[in-house]
Structures are given as structure tokens and as C-alpha cells.
Amino acid sequence: MTLNEIKDILRANVLTKCDTNMHIERVYSADLMSDVLAFCEPESLLITALTNAQVIRTAEFANIKMIVFVQGKRPDRETVALSEEKKIPVLITNLSMFDACGRLYEKGLRSCPDAE
């Protein structure tokens, strides 16, 4: 699924300059960064309600490709600047964590690691 499709499905805004054709297959969602570092696979999309700079750092070290912030939460300017520097696109949506995950699941995205 491309960034553009994710943006449409979540009615999200893209906060950083990025390649809208960037492709994602796996998703991990959590607000605990050590869980993300332990379980999220490289090249995935991270969905979280936390918006601090450590989320971007976590994405940087775990090779996460894209981040969606849910619940209408907006990262501050330094956090957006860091994600731009690390070339990790950041999207925000007003949807809840449950709805955001549910809609992407419905359209075919799956979790990492895959439980099935």
C-alpha cells in the first residue's frame, strides 16, 4: 500500500515532504517504544498516539519507514524537523488508534510480526 493510499484511507494530513509512492506492507501499533524496538520489523509503518521526538528516534533505529499519529495528536516543530531530517514521513489523523488500525486492516495491511 502506498503512502497516498494510507493518507486517503485515514483521511490524514502529511506533515513532511516525502515520496507519496512510498510502499508499506506491514504495520505495528504501540505507545511503548521498547515494544516497538523489540517487535516491529524493518520497513514497517508505525501507528502511535505518542508524538515526542523519541518516537522518531525509535523509528530511526528500528528502520521504520513511515509514522501515523492518531487521535488528532500533533507533534511539535522539533519532532517534525527530526522526522524530515531522518526522511521518515509523518502523517496525522483524527481517527482513534482502533479505527485507524481497523481501516488499514480492512484494506489488506497486516501486522508485524504476523500472528497468522
Partner: peptide
């Protein structure tokens, strides 16, 4: 609240 403190850091390092 910052997303840390799940008690997974040291086990993550070991892993």
C-alpha cells in the same frame, strides 16, 4: 508517558 518504562530495554539489549 514518554513511551518508556515497559521493562523491555535490558532484555532487548540482550536479544
Amino acid at each position: 508517558e514518554m513511551g518508556f518504562g515497559s521493562g523491555m530495554g535490558l532484555p532487548n539489549i540482550k536479544k
